[in-house]
Design a protein around this nucleic acid. Structure first.
Lengths: 106, 106
DNA sequence: ATAACATATGATAATTATATCATTCTTATG
DNA sequence: CATAAGAATGATATAATTATCATATGTTAT
């Protein structure tokens, strides 16, 4: 591991939250400002801002200023392949959970 | 997103824990049983077992029975490229500043 | 059979993360 | 300047996760 355990912990922690994942998912369609994200999700503004800060801190989204608006864009270079990779993993290993349950019954 | 938000949340949540990350890191060198993991890490046996269960549940480690021992092996096909990918991301978007901040928190 | 070791499980106290509230900062416009 | 709208920040009660304790299960050897 190139970096400290804590660095990886916080990186994954940033993605281990349903609201942040939903924000990411919405931003995948294109950049949006905070109010727009609130409208689409129904989330409170402060909650969105707090969570966007976490995502930006980890380089998962980028911020762009436009007047009084702050537009956020997802880091496609990272997020897109990351989610695709995990999809592949899940397809291959999610079935193991069932197998394991059968094994224990013996 | 192919899967539900919760599925991704729990996947990343499994990796958002320093003890589980340390266990993964040790298993990268080769398969080990629970006692061996405890010895190397200094962790309690019950804590290791609990965390291994989480990792196994998500297909991040595999279990192999050998007498009274249970050997755990990391899912290299997933974990290795995943960590490498994140290293690349960190080099480009975060790294140094974060590492330093984590150091200070100790 | 039972002792001794290896591992797993369940409950819960303690830690950590999170949403919410109150407030402040920023920018645009009358 | 004053006001309003968009966004960020800080404090904190709540919710979620985690380590620990007590105990159970499984395995080997005596």
């Amino acid at each position: 591991m190139k970096h400290s355990i804590k660095t990886y912990q916080f990186f994954f922690g940033a993605l281990a939250n349903p609201n942040r994942l939903q924000i990411i998912n919405i931003l995948r369609q294109g950049k949006k400002n905070v109010s727009e994200i609130c409208q689409v999700t129904g989330f409170e503004q402060t909650m969105v801002s707090h969570n966007l800060k976490v995502l930006e801190y980890h380089g998962m989204v980028f911020r762009e200023k436009n007047g009084k608006f702050r537009y956020y864009a997802v880091n496609k270079k990272t997020i897109k392949p990351l989610l695709e990779f995990i999809d592949t993993h899940m397809e291959e290993y999610c079935c193991r959970i069932l197998e394991e349950k059968h094994e224990r019954k013996k």
